[in-house]
Design a protein around this nucleic acid. Sequence first.
DNA 1: ATCACCATTTAATTCATCCG
DNA 2: CGGATGAATTAAATGGTGAT
Length: 272
Amino acid sequence: MEKKAIIIKAIEYMKDHLDEEITTEELSKYVGYSPYHFVRIFKEVTGVSPRHYLSALRIEAGKKILADSSSSILKASLSVGYRSMGTFSSLFKQYVGLPPKQYQNSIQDLYGFLNAYDFQETDRAFQPPLPSVVCHLEPPEKFNGIIFVGLFPRPIPDERPVAGTALKPGETTCAFYHVPDGTYYALAAAIAWSLNPKDYFLLNRALRGKAERPVAVKQGSQSVVRIKLREPLPYDPPILINLPRLLFEKVKGANKKKNDSDFFDKVKENNT
DNA sequence: ATCACCATTTAATTCATCCG
DNA sequence: CGGATGAATTAAATGGTGAT
């Protein structure tokens, strides 16, 4: 428990000095350990390295700026602590799933899509062929909202999942069918039903869920995982992935016969 | 068990460059 | 011009090892 307090202290420092240059050596000195040991216990508690966590915080801050202002990418990059736009841009793409400008441009459209999304039709209709992974969600008693679930390569959702979906309020089970071989972490984020568009993109208040153990997928294997949702903890890394977009892409895939037109091409046209 | 140090591997950062 | 990417530098994570 003491260990966690140390890490939280370091994370607080990061948050307070986001726009400055922060080295991990500096951080380790701040909490009184050697860099070597500091990095170890940091990863033990948060699941990622300090640098990775710091980048996540910066990208999160950048997302916020881009979501509620029409700031240029350069200005956003500088104000979250990077000295060049390139770093921000490439990390943003890696973490969120699309480059910063595209993200900024697509927020309104994705929000519209999400509101129009018909949960009834999409997931329930067909009989499943050989499921690869089945997830049982356990939200808190009186939770009412939308739950995103995905299979991620890392223990935190900082890059695109190999599979993902969303559950309408009330549903607690989902399945993924064509999952490529590999070992994944089943992670979930739950957002209380809201009318504010930004709540779907800035997820610092979202409930979190993680399956106890990673799930190994091999040819034709079947697994069942249980994910319990809980309030965010102070050392939880931020959730950066663009969840509504993943849902959109899933739907696009399901309707590929008729709807060939690409959503993001439309977005592009609307903004040029 | 907890921590520090070294050598090596791996990831982040910059700057230059390309694209639209 | 603003924004996105790639190659070369530089910082940091990791595994092994040994001290307290």
